[in-house]
Amino acid sequence: MSDRDPVRAHTVRLELDDEPGELLNALGPIADNGGNLLSIFHERGNRTPRGQIPVAVDVEATPERFDRIVAALRDAGVNVVQAGTEHYGDELTVVLVGPLLESNLSETLSRIESESDCSIKNVTLSIGESATDPSSARLRLAVHTGASDAALDAVRGVAYDQELQVISPLAGGESA
């Protein structure tokens, strides 16, 4: 890997002691190693079982720089609980329709998650009332930035296998 690798967004979960300077101490290694800080979620009202404050930091960096950032954080004594979980930048809403929907729903959802490389954030199911009115499910998917089309293709593939129709947002148009 080199610095010409694509820059991607990553999330680092840290647990920091509730002491002055701890946050600054954690952010230093990120900047020093060429990471572009996207956001910091400092859950001050929350405490971990060990009495620390959970902090989620979104960083943009090449994979190589990101590895250096994580190593530097650990060297600086920062408690890194999770690193490298990729950031899902885009959201995609689809509606699935079909008479077999509810009987196969959990299988459908797990296949969509594994085959489309997305994370299902929310599912709302509406059971049809008659034979001519099949059930529908609205899925809100978190997908990697710029990967909506690929995710949608994967959803269509799973839906085809499960005999479901996919009602997707319009690609390229106003999709809200």
């Binding site: 509606v95 329709v97 099949p134 609205r138 009602i167 947002p169 809200a176």
Partner: peptide, 17 residues
């Protein structure tokens, strides 16, 4: 094959079909 339920799910989300 678009059922009324799909349209109401879309509407809850500020969308239509």
């Amino acid at each position: 094959n678009v059922p009324a339920s799909a349209l109401s799910l879309a509407a809850e989300d500020g969308r239509t079909i």
